[in-house]
Amino acid sequence: MEANSRWVALTAVAPVAWGANYYVTRAYLPPDSPLYGAALRALPAGLALLALRRRRPRGVWWWRSAVLGVVNVSVFFALVYAASQLLPTSVASTVMAASPLTMMFLAWPLVAERPRAAHLAGAAIGLGGVCLMLLTGAVAASIAGMLASAAAVLVSSFGHLLTKRWSGGTDMIATTAWQLVAGGLFLLPFAAAVEGAPPALSPAALLAFGFVSLVATALAFTAWFTGLRHLPAGTVGLIGLLNPVTGVLCGVLIAGEELTVRQLCGLALVLTGVVLGRPARTRASAPGGPCAPAAGQVSSCASRSISSPSSQTPVRWLRQ
């Protein structure tokens, strides 16, 4: 259970960084260059991680890195930007808060993880808390923006679970690095064709891009994908509810926004949902390690290897 707590704490780094990213992006980054913004967010992050793991893909990981980069980086970043432009932040954040339920239901066919009742209850309570915090009902919602936000939920849930399915036994820093590089390179020609020359960046914008790229992308994505490897998808999805919580707290502590009683109640509900989704307490590990089978049982790691050929991929998938 102590090990699970460490993985939960590591995974929580990602939604906290993404929640802070809302404020940094809105306050300091150019609003009219979404494609360049996404590319400048992805490429430096990928190159920084490659500096830590100087390895290149091998075999099937050439096309897997490209697929995951397009889904998790290129398409997702573009959809999130479109939703943030077409919808009030409160509405866009609330739609994205549906991702825990989406991830749970997609995890069943993709990675053979059936959602637990506690996960479903936590997701419902957490979604209710986000709605209580953010929805005001005072503004009309764009249909196009709602569709973009809903598509972002589906794309990110599918891409993250595909990463979980494929990345067993691989170096997580290296896999994340190549996803970011592939996604950033894919965006560049579209950015040049649609937006023309890259935007001029002030010193403040350069510092903001440093945070967005290194903290909210390189560090956050590595933590998130590592959590997906070691925790149930339902638990990881619920930890993602810390994203809108962090956004609200940044608004109060940094931007001087008012924290209402309704928002405090919503925060309490969200945190309750996250606690409900914590990993179930397991038996102590056998001497053979955390995957050693109990008497008369098949090892859970062995069953995963049989059911998912991709999990047999060894760490040497990357060539030095």
Rank of each mutant, 00 (worst) to 15 (best):
T25S: 15
E257A: 15
G266Q: 08
A174V: 02
S142M: 02
A107D: 00
P244S: 15
Y23W: 11
T25G: 15
A3K: 11
G168W: 04
P88D: 14
M172Y: 01
R53I: 00
G256L: 12
A302G: 04
L241F: 08
L47T: 00
T217A: 09
L318G: 07
A192E: 08
L87V: 07
G183V: 02
L68H: 10
C291N: 10
P34G: 06
L127E: 11
R165S: 06
M103V: 12
A42C: 10
A216Y: 03
Y22K: 05
R165M: 07
A78C: 12
P34N: 07
A255S: 14
G196S: 14
V261A: 14
M172G: 03
I143N: 03
S202F: 08
A138M: 04
P279L: 00
D171C: 05
A51C: 07
V70I: 15
R58K: 14
A268T: 09
V181S: 10
C131Q: 14
G137K: 12
R53Q: 14
F221N: 07
L253C: 12
N4D: 15
L180Q: 12
L318K: 00
L207T: 10
R262K: 09
N4R: 01
Q320M: 05
F158P: 00
L134I: 01
A138R: 12
R229M: 09
G184V: 05
L162N: 08
L207P: 04
T313G: 05
Q263M: 14
P30H: 06
P232A: 13
S300W: 03
L318R: 03
V315I: 04
Y28K: 01
A177K: 00
L10Y: 02
L29N: 03
L43T: 01
V194R: 12
P44L: 05
P31N: 01
C291L: 06
P244I: 10
V73P: 03
R165P: 03
A192G: 10
A123Q: 05
T272I: 04
L47H: 06
L231E: 11
L79E: 01
V153F: 07
A208G: 05
A268L: 11
A218V: 03
P309H: 14
F105Q: 09
V248G: 07
L264I: 13
R116V: 00
A268N: 01
P203N: 13
N21G: 09
V67E: 05
G122C: 13
A204S: 14
N72W: 01
Y28R: 05
P57W: 07
F158Y: 13
G288F: 06
A82Q: 10
G128W: 04
T260I: 09
T94N: 11
T11C: 15
V274R: 02
G256Y: 06
R64K: 12
W62F: 15
S99A: 15
L135D: 12
E2K: 12
A140Y: 00
I125G: 00
T246E: 11
A205C: 10
L228I: 01
G210F: 09
C250V: 13
T282A: 11
R56F: 14
C265Q: 13
G288L: 06
L135K: 05
V275A: 10
A42L: 08
R319D: 11
L106T: 04
H230P: 05
F221T: 03
L259C: 08
G210V: 03
A38Y: 00
G137W: 08
T136A: 13
A223C: 15
I239C: 05
P314Q: 07
